Computed example of a mutant assay.
Amino acid sequence: MGTFAVYAAAALAELAGCFAFWAWLRLDRSPWWILPGALSLIAFALLLTRIDASVAGRAFAAYGGVYIVASIGWMRFVEGARPDRWDLIGGAICLAGAAVILLGPRGG
């Protein structure tokens, strides 16, 4: 699985896990939402270990940009809220920053 695919899968797992807890605590859903939420967050953590980076902090920092863009997609496609231009511009800036962190040339 390529780096972007792993990041995308991790973002989906983290968003689903966090949303399960949001649903339980903020939307008055059943406490049973905790179980799939916790499993999803475990999957998220395991997926991030599959990133091909020399140090964990760099992998996590680059993931942040992907997570932000995925969150905007979640807002649109799961919650039905349309992102405004500032959401989209901010997401593009974050994704560009993630690319610089992950793909920038590293000295010997």
Rank of each mutant, 00 (worst) to 15 (best):
V78C: 08
I51C: 05
G64T: 11
S30I: 12
A10F: 03
A8Y: 08
R58A: 01
G65P: 02
A59M: 05
A8E: 11
A81N: 13
E14Y: 14
M1N: 12
A23H: 04
L46W: 14
A11E: 03
G80H: 10
W22M: 10
I51E: 04
W24T: 06
I72L: 05
A45I: 09
R50P: 07
S40M: 06
G2H: 13
M75I: 05
L47C: 02
V66Y: 07
M75H: 05
A9C: 07
Y7C: 04
A23F: 01
I42K: 07
L46G: 07
R76I: 00
G65F: 00
L39K: 06
V78P: 03
Y67A: 11
M75A: 08
A5E: 10
A61Q: 09
S54F: 12
A61G: 08
I72P: 03
R82M: 13
V69L: 12
G65Q: 00
L27W: 02
A59K: 03
R58E: 15
S30C: 14
G37S: 06
A10Q: 04
S54Y: 02
S54M: 02
W32A: 15
F77S: 07
A62S: 13
P36G: 12
A9V: 03
A81T: 11
R29T: 04
P36H: 07
A23K: 03
W74P: 00
F77L: 15
L12S: 04
F77Q: 07
V55Q: 15
L35Q: 06
E14C: 08
R26T: 02
L48M: 05
I34Q: 01
F77G: 14
R58M: 08
R29M: 13
A43T: 15
D28E: 13
D52R: 12
F44P: 00
F77Y: 15
P31M: 04
A62H: 04
T49L: 07
L27A: 13
I68Y: 01
I34H: 00
A61V: 12
M1W: 13
L12G: 11
F19H: 15
I34R: 06
F19S: 12
Y67Q: 03
Y63A: 00
L35W: 13
L35V: 14
W33N: 00
W32N: 06
E79T: 07
G2V: 12
D28M: 02
F44Q: 00
C18G: 09
V55A: 07
W24N: 11
Y67H: 08
A9M: 14
A13S: 14
I72D: 10
F4M: 14
G64F: 06
V6S: 15
I68H: 01
Y63C: 01
G64L: 11
F19G: 09
A5P: 00
R58G: 05
A70R: 00
S30E: 09
